[in-house]
Design a protein around this nucleic acid. Sequence first.
DNA 1: AACATGTTCATAT
DNA 2: TGAACATGTT
Length: 776
Amino acid sequence: MGIQGLLPLLKSIQRPTELKKYSGETFGVDAYGWLHRGAVPCAIELAQGKPTRKYVDFAMNRVRMLKHFGITPYLVFDGGFLPSKASTEASREKRREECKKAGLELLKAGKPSQAHAELQKAVDITPEMARHLIEELKKAGVPYVVAPYEADPQLVYLEQQGITNGILSEDSDLLVFGAKRLLTKLDQYGNCIEVNRRDFGACREVSLTGWSDAQFRQMAILSGCDYLDSINNMGLKTAYRMLRKHKTPEKVIRMLQFDGKYRVPADYQKMFHQAEQTFLYQWIFCPKANKLIHLTAPSPDLDMAELPYIGPFIEPEVARGIAVGDVNPITKEPIILQTLPSPRKRTASGTPRSMPQTQATREPPEKPIDSYFKGHRRIPMGEMEPNCFSVDPRRVSSLTENGNRPIVYPLPRPYLDQNGPNSSTSRTYINRPESSSRTLRRRTEPVTNILSDNGHSLTSNSRRQTTGPGMEVSGNSRSTGVNQPIRPPKKARLCDDASSGLSLSKEKSKFFTGSKGTTVKKEEKYLMSDDSVEDALNDLPDFGGWAPARRGHKEIAVYEEAQPPVDDERPKDDDLNVEGIMDDATASTQNEPPSTPNIIERFTYAPSVSSTSVTRGPGQSRRQSASTTFSGRSSLSGSTPASSIASSTPFSSNTQPSTAKTTPATPRMTPLQRLGIQALGRNKQPPTPTFAVPRPPKRSTQGRRILDSIPVNPADVPLPPVDLEEVEALHEPVGSEDLMIPESENEDGPEEQENLGSGKDKRVARRMDLSRFRFA
DNA sequence: AACATGTTCATAT
DNA sequence: TGAACATGTT
């Protein structure tokens, strides 16, 4: 259940984002959520004991989605029950059984819908089910680990160790465990919300400034959590107030016991302590040490024997078996895998078959897609092709790879390239992909062909990872290494493709594509992505409009700035930093040029989105011209990747970066763009020169150096200035967004006030632009 | 007025 | 299942 009300409490620091912003990073994923969501639709089959693998497909689709956006998922599965939750688990099991019975009876009674409703509640994710997913993960080369007990502390540990760069989960408990960067509310379009620990100080609902992790944790526990039942009338706000007043939970509890308003169990003090210890010291499997360790290293004077509620230590042998999915974490018995119906893979073999069928089938779906594009609607997962996220070689080569490059911000990661583009032989289906990919290319597009090569390389790379037979946790543990390898290949391709930046632009996310996209489709796909952005823009009002603007900036900024600076020297660990850098870059002066293009782009899109009819006509022409212009984007993306690749390959090729900058900024400008710029220009330019110019330089230099100089794990790296800016933005809106002027609030970021200030200014300006644009 | 709690709605599958 | 709304309590 998590901490109820925690996310609402942190609403002011939740910022909407898109997965693509995290391209190149590794995110720990709470596998349970995906498994459960995938399992609910087949509740009836599961209840009847019929073999299904729908839930595996759902999860794998999400995996593919993440991969599509350049993110490496690191799946973390729940393990055994925590003693403190054993009773809870038992009662849940009871309830499940009851629901199952009732559901099955309803089914017999001929009430399938009611039966399904009932059986949904009976859905239980078993270790065997997890294992089925794990089998697919192995094939796909996706890192994973089965936690000895709960997935939450395991996820947080991986993040703390820098094995992952963030966590993707719906569980607010993760923040209590100490998650630094949490992505939640992920939808099928890649939109999600980031909650960053660094932003806590900016929380408006309650002032968390200066609050330690311990205080935050105590507040959460006090309000009631999985390990401790809540006291009546005690919510987060009250817990916060009490804790603020009395400082320590002991005192708070004592006070509560005096207050007749609350009914405090006699052993509450003790139970509270246990809950706290559970959050702190829960067992997790360390993929490096290959054994169980505590999430938090206990101080020497702490007797672990006094913590029976966190569960017993598990011998490394067994723990390892559990971690890789071979051993049932509950029974400690080996898991015997029952073969599922048909491992429907998008394997090569499958592909050919599906092709005909798919196409036939797809045609209908495609219409919806079109409608989607035209309208604002998005295609529900269910309507999408089951394997649309799959890494089909064909698609991948044609769409994904290429599409991804442009869309995703390619972060220069020279070190990644080390893996070599086609290191391995791929699996069966992989092999076919090659051939198929070629075929696809043809079908897809002429332009694509160029890309296809790239795509191919990518495919091979990703596959390569897949190949990793020793999907052992340990192997995976190097998630960074494993995952990242995928990226580099792309870059390489890009480099290859550098010549054909435009073509890249056309290619879009396979992810969105329902069918094997034809060129047109691709474009549409592209639109889709854009649409999403626009939607986000529409949503802006809620958050204050900064979000969308920011995105554009970031993206651009990232690519531009990140590459140049990044290229020079990139330690592996800087990956995280990259983002930060990007943000900085955004804030920095350099942003101006990039920002403009972005705005333009958006501008372009906006019309299409906002006014369907209007857009349409021009839309297409726009696209093509857009392709030109867009090349703004495409060129950006294209050039960027290329540059990144180039840079990455040689490691430090200054040429590329410069090129990238130049290319995007200058060449892009088309008449339309210029007009747009002019229109927007006021806001932008004034602020930029005024604020940005003076400060950015400092920042870019100093700030960057600082960041670069930090040798810390990515996870530890402080959020980029961007975040601060955002935070600021958030604050501003509170008072009155419109009125708020950048400078007004610089309180929070002592260090980065400068940055923030500039950032704010820009942002504000951007907002203004956007709003104008819209209304205009 | 602020907050905790309970109910209903919507969404997605 | 989560979120928004309505209710009840202090």
